[in-house]
Amino acid sequence: MNNNLSAAAAAQKRFKKTGFLHHRTFLQEMVRRWPFYLMILPGMLYIVIFNYLPMFGAVIAFKDYNPVKGIWGSKWIGFKNFEFFFKSDAAWRVTFNTIFYNLLIIVLVTVISVLFAILLQETGSRMRTAVYKSVMLMPFFLSWIVGEYIVYALLNTDQGLVNGIRKSLGLEAIDWYSDAIYWRFIMPLAYLLKQVGYTSVIYVAAVTGISSDYYEAAEIDGASKWQKARFITIPLLMPVVIILMLLWLGKIFNGGLGDWGAFYNLPRESGILFSSTDVIDTYVFRSLRTVNDIGMSSAVGLYQAVVGLVLVLISNYLVKKYDSDSSLF
């Protein structure tokens, strides 16, 4: 086994300068590890057909897209489609909001979910754990459109439940929909409530996947619950935490791991709130309402993807330096 590997490595070294070596070792690798590559094949085939083939459509970003002429028949126009976004004075504001909310939500969701995943093991009853987990997951099933109704039911000025409570306590009703500052808190809160259940479920799976041997050994050594969490659970959860954060980072400019539906629906498109609720996707959606131009929307999509890619490549490089096992690739 080991012999084989070192032989291959030696061969690689020897032929490093010859051009056709790469091809040969590729074939060798395929032959030697054929069962693994066979396992990859169906998924890879799917990704090539359904993800990579349509990707050529991204050239629309550089074209004056005419649906009748098709993607290839349309005229090339360079970077003209990018202009509307970068020339607008809102570009900075929405970029800031996008980063602000993403970072805030990434950190909060991760910390709370990991905490919940660990504490869910400590409720003292498997039954209770199961109930909590199911209930926590429930908001995840509600779409943001339904969410809009719920938030409106809670916050509308005249008949909202929150203002009802405030009135019964002798406090003045608050006009939630016309003061942007509240939404700096409402948006992350709504997002958390929907997302934490889902992310916790992933971490719970990771925690239950940890072999009980570790804990037994620690118990023999007299480790406390806190110590077990600190020295066993959290380190073993780290790879999953890192992978989820990397994935999220990649989409930071493009909806995050969740979706921007919240930012579109919950504030009910109230113009007064835009200073704190407008993110790149909602801004683009709004600007293209009448123009309805595929070229311009894919230009912004492409920009978001490129920034995401750069972010991930940098962070992946850093992760790899410290813990190569946890890196994305």
């Binding site: 113009g271 293209l288 009448t290 311009m296």
Partner: peptide, 22 residues
Amino acid sequence: NSEPVKTQIANVDATLKEYLYT
């Protein structure tokens, strides 16, 4: 034919939504 000024329309549209209704 809005093609020649679609960049401007996109930006105007975003501004309208922000101010018009309020």
